[in-house]
Design a protein around this nucleic acid. Sequence first.
RNA 1: GGCGAGAUAGCUCAGCUGGCUAGAGCACGCGGUUCAUACCCGCGGAGUCGAGGGUUCGAAUCCCCCUCUCGCUACCA
Length: 506
Amino acid sequence: MKEKFSIFTAIAYTSAKPHIGNTYEIVLADSIARFKRLLGYDVYFQTGTDEHGEKIAIKAKEQGVTCQEYCDNISQEIKDIWDIMNTSYDRFVRTTDPIHEKVVGNIFEKLLNQGDIYLGKYEGLYCIPCESFFTESQLVDGKCPDCGREVVKKSEESYFFKMSKYQKRLEDYIESHPEFIEPESRKNEIMNNFIKPGLLDLCVSRTSFDWGIKVPSDPKHVVYVWLDALTNYITNIGYDVDSTKEEFQKYWPADLHVIGKDIIRFHMIYWPIFLMALDLPLPKKIFAHPWLLMNEDKMSKSKGNVLYADDLVKQFGVDAIRYYVLHEIPYGHDGNITNELIIDRINSDLANVLGNLVNRTIAMAKKYFDGHIENKKETDPIDFDFIKLINDLKTKVTKRMDELEIGKALDEIFELLRRSNKYIDETMPWVLAKDDQNKNRLETVLYHLLESIRISAIFLTPFLPDTGKEIQKQLNQLDEHFEFQESLKYHVFDPTPIFLRIKVEK
RNA sequence: GGCGAGAUAGCUCAGCUGGCUAGAGCACGCGGUUCAUACCCGCGGAGUCGAGGGUUCGAAUCCCCCUCUCGCUACCA
């Protein structure tokens, strides 16, 4: 039986169209999901949208539509972008899905009945005109950060979750599972800032707005954000408080949660504790990825420095953008994006190294052998090192993927591509072609190159799905072995450039 | 303020538990080549490895201190 691998992105909040930075997460998760499928895992890959809350209600009102209509629109827009990015999720969930709403209600009641949730009072500093609560630290000069007016103490009836009850268990769990949170620095932040000083109980209901899931036993309350949002990971795959479906048993716990570094607190504290309260296993790993900065600056609408995935794809193509974000955002810290940097990567990596290699190799196969290439096995010592590199690719890429070093996994493939270009210079096929006595040697060299490209294309597929397929098509070779094959028969046709260089006007 | 991360070639970064002349990619310069998308291959660069002190036969790598940058510091998500 296939080993399972379940991967979940955070669900995107439907407050606005996601920019390329927000879109990075789904592409990142997609490359991991596709890679695991390539290795033969039974993969489940889930994403979706988070749709409740006061902010949504306000936006919907501004647009003069119902909350549901508003969410339908944005959720669809998000889904469209995920599709434009060619991401291979198995399920797109929404917190407004009836099954989710029902199970969240059940979870709330269960936690209430077992005493983990209690009715209390939320006390905070309130700005009356803005109708918002703020914490001490959010205030600007002791006044409302939005409008600058005085705030008053106000309390509101709310349900709370007893975080403190599970604090020790969570702390022990994190200490004894060093692989649980990556990168480690994020773990330190949460441990030192929140868990060790002592957890505050979490407010899990609101009465000040009603766009949310009603608490079944007390419908003037709606379930507040995180108990609603985080549970998406289990409600849609068949968890309920008194029964679970086969799909849930198969795919839970998650092997990997891919989330932004901004919401690690919720995934590292609240989510594990909710699961403990429900007596469910915790996800095996939570990866808090960094951000994509626009010219070293955080993207925001108000700054006007926002890049959107769909615009970029129109301009550069989906695989170029996938390559850019996957390659340029390192594991531990923010990456940077500008048009110039994208063009730079397309030209030097995709067009020069990859595209040109494919093009020149196929062109030679066509020119010297009318496209028919077999392994004549007229080898030279110079070949061994090259073939070894081809056969090492799987191990190297797998290691990098296991480390969640996606950019470095791509580098491993490009190292082989560069080596292949070098191999051409070392063997000089155009010289061999001048003498018929070298015919078998020439064909052997081209065979080696075709094998290198074939295997590179296979490993490129998780990251650049269309490109991987296009190369396979041009090679006219669908063999799927990860290692160098001794006796494939190639019959290639005229090559077509896969990435064109982009000329920059200055 | 507290906690955490970082400061290495023009740019983006590798350099785990200290050890041959500090590396890669890009950019730049020179040379080679022509199968190929003016591509590819080779060679090169005066980098005080943020500053200072210490440990050691030996430190970018360990310790101390300083400077600077960034992240987190609870109910917006």
